[in-house]
Write a protein that binds this DNA or RNA. Structure first.
Length: 452
DNA sequence: TTTTGAGTTGTTCGA
DNA sequence: GTCGAACAACTCAAA
């Protein structure tokens, strides 16, 4: 047996103990592990739902660690590029383990931390990722990345995905809480906001309910996943998995979910459609890794010439969109659901996004920023590329004529008005004429063609 | 190299 | 009410 050494498990967005390869590596070979989370000051800009959600996720992770060991989650606040190397030195930890982060900010941060650790003879060790297939893992025959989802997903489906990994065993050595208490800081002040049940156990419960034989939201004798294809577009029902925040913060890993799914069905099968959504998550993470600029700039730069409104009147229109007073029922319902709960149904996300871009003629970045501030599941890659999809500037060669009609969408997906009545019972007059604004959007798109 | 088929989620119009 | 066609042109991926 080699000399026991210490490691730090630096949690970022994998806030769980089960199925976490980085944690298994951190505790391997008899290493004594320090579980750490650093609250980055950049996070202070997040909205109340998001801060409350992270607060509760950290509290849940701390409880899980205390339940299984004599240790605790060490919370620090500040710049990770300073805190992590200093802690590693103070605690005598030679290795810092993480799940790899592929987003632009995280990559830059990790490179800096890695360099600082190396100066002290220590190492940052990235193990696995929050994705079923880590970004970079799906490539065309010639080794280049995909820019179109469908061929990506075909290869993704055939890529071997690990079986879920176990939690660290009873033999894992955790640094006693007593030796961390003096170093620890409180999480941060919890905003007064009601979150859904948060954390690893709550996530597994949600997933189990989704798989439950009679869990379908329409009362039919099907599971949620079996009914997923039929019900996922109806925002009045709980027809989606509602696991987006669990996946974002890593209470669950997609590997865990995929292992429970029977994917032998046709392309309309609920499980197959659900797995495809997980593939979208991996796809957008891959696109962001290849094109870091696409977080905030048009992936298709041809659209840089597209006229968008940014003047004072545009800002006033944005405010009405954000607070949910456009006078279009399903738009207002969605925006108010977001403010009230930190979450919005996926179908409605597309509708409000289309409205901001095609009816209000505003930059998609304004909407993306608002979503990231308020969504408990807000993720840079999925969120911003989803917005680029709505704007037609992203990976899919969007048909220029794809403009959502908010009234038609409402009639089709909320026919009884239950969703709209629940969230926006008091809506006023429509703030614009959709037909006229649709034509304006098409005119603006046509200018791209004219300018080549 | 060239060709071919396809590309998440739509809407409108006219028969 | 229902159905199919039209709505740009282009890029991507694979044969």
């Amino acid at each position: 047996m080699t000399k026991p050494s210490r490691s730090i498990m630096w949690f970022r967005r994998d806030l769980r103990l089960a199925d976490l390869p980085a944690l298994l590596a951190a505790t391997a070979d008899g290493r004594e592990v320090v579980p750490l989370f650093v609250v980055d000051p950049a996070f202070a800009a997040a909205g109340a739902p998001r801060r409350a959600y992270l607060h509760d996720s950290l509290a849940a992770l701390d409880r899980s660690i205390r339940d299984r060991s004599e240790s605790r989650l060490l919370i620090r606040r500040g710049d990770p590029t300073e805190i992590v190397p200093r802690l590693a030195a103070d605690l005598g930890a030679d290795e810092v383990y993480v799940s790899k982060d592929f987003a632009p900010y995280g990559r830059a941060r990790d490179e800096e931390v890695s360099a600082a650790l190396r100066d002290g003879g220590r190492h940052l060790i990235g193990v696995a990722s929050p994705y079923a297939v880590a970004p970079g893992g799906v490539r065309k025959g010639d080794g280049t990345p995909y820019r179109v989802f469908t061929p990506f997903s075909k290869v993704w489906r055939q890529t071997g995905i690990d079986a879920p990994h176990p939690e660290p065993g009873d033999d894992a050595r955790w640094v006693p809480a007593a030796s961390l208490d003096d170093l620890a800081e409180p999480i941060f002040e919890r905003p007064d906001f009601e979150t859904p049940p948060v954390g690893e156990e709550a996530g597994h419960r949600r997933w189990t309910e989704f798989l439950d034989a009679a869990g379908a939201a329409d009362g039919t004798l099907r599971s949620g996943v079996e009914a997923y294809h039929d019900l996922r577009d109806l925002p009045a029902l709980a027809g989606t998995s509602r696991l987006s925040a669990d996946l974002k913060w890593g209470a669950l890993h997609p590997r865990t979910l995929l292992a429970d799914l029977d994917l032998s069905g046709s392309k309309d099968d609920g499980a197959v459609v659900f797995a495809s959504e997980l593939a979208w998550r991996d796809f957008y993470a891959d696109v962001l890794r290849e094109h870091p600029r696409s977080a905030w700039w048009n992936l298709d730069t041809k659209f840089d010439a597209m006229p968008v409104d940014t003047d004072a009147a545009a800002k006033a229109r944005f405010d009405r969109w954000a607070e949910g007073t456009t006078g279009f029922g399903i738009v207002d319902a969605g925006m108010r659901q977001l403010l009230a709960t930190g979450w919005m149904h996926n179908r409605v996300r597309m509708i409000v996004a289309s409205f901001l871009v095609k009816d209000l003629h505003l930059p998609w970045q304004w909407g993306a920023r608002w979503f990231l501030q308020h969504l408990i599941d807000g993720d840079l890659a999925s969120n911003n590329h989803g917005w680029q999809w709505a704007a037609g500037t992203g990976t899919d060669a969007a048909p220029y004529f794809r403009v959502f009609n908010p009234t038609t969408q409402q009639e089709r997906y909320d026919p009884t008005g239950e969703y709209v009545d629940r969230w926006a019972p008091d809506r006023g007059e429509p703030m614009l004429d959709h037909r006229a604004e649709r034509e304006e959007a098409l005119r603006r798109l046509a200018t791209l063609k004219a300018s080549g």
